[in-house]
Amino acid sequence: MNELEQLEQQFSSRIRLSMDQLLPVPDSSRLLDIEQDMNLEKPVNRRWLIWIAVLLGLTGISVAYWYQSQQKVPIQDEIKVITPENTPTRDIPALMHQHLDQQGEPNSPVIYQQEVISDE
């Protein structure tokens, strides 16, 4: 048995008795009050909450896009290409493309019509 063990054997019970005997004892009702005030529900893991929020957000955005695409009613723009009456028919597509290049690409399907101006 080394010195520390001998000293421990000599003093440990005395120290324990002395402290138990002379230190005050807490009021059990006060400790019970503290126990009752404690919220023993474990805190929710915030990392999981963040992931759930991100997933819900992405799902919401996807549903919104899908819903919007279902609601879209194609607008049938009408582009009239006015050509002189004597314009050869084979030139009309080229004129229509030229018109489109000037106006820019429309968002909705476009119906092309040719209106022929009569000289009369």
């Binding site: 402290m19 230190l23 005050p24 004892v25 059990s28 400790l31 503290i34 126990e35 005030d37």
Partner: peptide, 30 residues
């Protein structure tokens, strides 16, 4: 709760032994 009942009393007495007043020891335990 079983853990609390075992340790709260020991902790309170330890805090008093380390210099806390009795009232402070209740607050510190909490």
């Amino acid at each position: 709760r079983r853990f609390y009942r075992h340790e709260s009393q020991r902790l309170w007495r330890y805090l008093v032994a380390r210099g806390a007043t009795e009232a402070q020891a209740y607050d510190l335990v909490s």
